[in-house]
């Protein structure tokens, strides 16, 4: 069966250091802009899906309250994933493959400022072996970073260089460790934020955008949850998703990688077999701005924006779970 042609036609994001707005207030201008930029309203959307985590605010079913932003009328076909919005986009892409709907709105929101995010993340771990130990997300990142350093895949100098480039500030290995061997510069810059993407199929996409970012391939794969039962120095699920999405040898001008820690960039670049000609994370990525649960969708948005603005091909990557447990790869192209 041939896949239906689907493109990202619009992207909007808002990222702030700390939002004093609630989720709906944060989302409203973002949804308005994503839809308005292509002349649509919610009534034109066939399928709506969001990604977020109720753990950030500590309120169950908070994502239902966020749908207030869509308005009570007309009734909508709606879904949600308790994951980064990038995985909501995957669901929208699958839904549009059914063929009966032509447009989808994907949005994500996250306000990690509501709590101690790195500690809260321990609640996503398995409830028997890892969660009772309460390891924070920075520590788990550091375990993977040391594994990468021990294997010779990167160096502390390289981590500082990557972090400096993404953050746009000077970095140095003379800075103290936050979690040895990670310094603060090699860890994500937590932000509050929201983002939205509009997908459209076939001629609908051509009508909405002068230069749609067509989805050539989209795939996501998962590895064992336990950090000790999988390789921390090779992202096998990224390799699998890259094959599924046609990313190997794709020759992308730009790759937007959801690397929350500096050591994940070389790991992911290797799994995607990125050539030196591919620009990695010109947006700065999660090292510069990490609106948790939104960051992956922003990678798709920035990769699409690169195509909208003239790039021939772009790759977007998003991740979920501890230490790159699950990975999504999307190839985008102009046609």
């Amino acid at each position: 069966m041939g896949e239906r042609e689907i493109a990202i036609v619009s992207f909007a994001e808002v990222i702030v250091e700390r939002s004093d707005r609630d989720d709906c207030e944060l989302l409203l201008p973002v949804l308005k802009r994503a839809l308005g930029d292509v002349g649509l309203t919610q009534q034109d959307i066939g399928f709506t899906v969001s990604g977020s985590s109720d753990f950030l605010g500590g309120r169950p079913f908070a994502f239902v309250m966020a749908t207030d932003v869509l308005g009570a009328w007309p009734p909508i076909r709606e879904s949600h994933v308790e994951m980064d919005g990038a995985f909501a986009l995957y669901e929208a892409w699958v839904r549009l493959q059914h063929g009966d709907l032509d447009t989808a709105l994907v949005f994500a929101f996250g306000r990690p400022s509501q709590g101690p995010l790195h500690d809260v993340m321990s609640l996503q771990l398995d409830p028997y072996y890892m969660a009772p130990l309460r390891p924070d997300a920075l520590s788990l990142g550091a375990l993977a970073a040391r594994a990468a350093l021990d294997a010779g895949l990167t160096s502390e100098d390289e981590l500082a260089r990557i972090a400096g480039e993404r953050r746009g500030v000077p970095t140095s290995t003379s800075e103290p460790y936050l979690r040895e061997p990670l310094r603060a510069h090699a860890t994500p810059t937590l932000r509050d934020g929201a983002a939205a993407i509009v997908l459209a199929a076939g001629d609908g996409a051509r009508a909405l955008s002068k230069r749609p970012a067509w989805i050539r391939g989209l795939d996501h794969r998962i590895e064992p949850h336990s950090l000790g039962a999988r390789s921390l120095t090779r992202s096998v699920s990224t390799e699998q998703a890259a094959r599924g999405a046609g990313a190997l040898g794709f020759g992308a001008d730009v790759a937007e990688l959801h690397a929350r820690f500096a050591h994940e960039e070389p790991l992911l670049s290797r799994a995607l077999e990125l050539p030196a000609s591919t620009r990695v994370n010109p947006s700065g990525g999660a090292l510069a701005q990490d609106p948790v649960m939104v960051t992956g969708l922003c990678r798709l948005g920035h990769a699409a924006r690169a195509v909208h603005e003239g790039a021939a091909r772009a790759i977007a990557h998003a991740t979920s779970g501890p230490c790159l447990q699950q990975n999504l790869v999307c190839t985008l192209e102009a046609r």
């Binding site: 309460r134 520590s139 375990l143 993977a144 040391r146 460790y177 979690r179 040895e180 000790g228």
Partner: peptide, 21 residues
């Protein structure tokens, strides 16, 4: 096989004094 150092343990972690994961 890999480790990191926690200088300030958080409540609920296995040890109250600095330790390695």
């Amino acid at each position: 096989t890999t480790w990191t150092w926690v200088a300030e343990p958080a409540p609920g972690q296995p040890l109250a004094r600095p330790f390695a994961w």
